[in-house]
Write a protein that binds this DNA or RNA. Structure first.
Lengths: 133, 133
DNA sequence: CTGCGACTTGAAGCGCGGTTCAAGTCAAGG
DNA sequence: CCTTGACTTGAACCGCGCTTCAAGTCGCAG
């Protein structure tokens, strides 16, 4: 009928997520098909954008429950904005820590201590990672 | 006897990890007490450095099994170096993604769309997050 | 000697984020 | 019509990273 609608298999291929994961997300209220084709779920193409957002947030350490609350909120939701502000700080700090970790890894790639983890430069870097500056 | 040795409770307080977590790490081969005081584990102070490293790596998305392999390796372990190089790239990419996510969050804090996730700037940012540049 | 509290063990349980399985339904093609 | 293959469901299972629990063992203070 409407060939702009997507089957679960197509959504899975396009999003890189398993069909089982899509059904799981549906149970959690994160996504929903716009309708059914017989029994089969029919998705709007925009669902892919939503899934990209979900994947991204999940990678950033948000739980699916957090993402769910996050997804249905208007501009007047002060509590949500507060949570997002908190998250923004958290992500920012995580970025700092990971940056230092990456630098440690880079160094250890070219250093020669035995065992590797005893390298003083590396240890110092780790200390910088764990201590909030 | 030797008051430079630490009891599990002291290690827990100093590291911020629960005693149960420390015993769990021990079962996984990540840490070990240098001896026992009766039944009680006695730790070297250096264990705290090791735990800082473990915590840091775990936060960065390494599994405990990965961390374990990582911890006992000399400079001649080519396979380990290869894995670390891979991890360095992964962490680096994660940093990029998180940076963009943080920027998205920053923007959405000051924008006014309904629902928030429909903000075009935000959506574009999310797209940048998911698409490797 | 008698608590007391911090430790010990192994085993079971939990929350998260899914995957896997069995059994069934449906639409399209030969 | 009948097969094929992708979908449907609920329920069970999984790996990870711990926590909790029951039952027991210490060492030290009073």
């Amino acid at each position: 009928m409407d060939d702009t609608l997507l089957d679960i298999g197509e959504v899975a291929r396009a999003s890189g997520l398993a069909p089982s994961a899509l059904r799981f997300y549906e149970r959690k209220g994160l996504i929903a098909p716009v309708g059914r084709n017989g029994l089969r779920r029919a998705y709007l193409p925009g669902t892919l954008d939503r899934l990209a957002l979900i994947t991204c947030a999940r990678d950033a350490g948000f739980t699916l429950a957090e993402i769910g609350r996050f997804l249905d909120a208007g501009p007047d939701d002060a509590e949500l904005r507060a949570r997002m502000a908190v998250k923004e700080r958290e992500v920012d700090e995580l970025v700092s820590r990971l940056t230092r970790l990456r630098d440690s890894l880079r160094h250890v790639l070219v250093c020669d201590h035995d065992p590797l983890v005893e390298c003083p430069e590396f240890k110092q870097a780790v200390r910088r990672v764990s201590v909030p500056e």
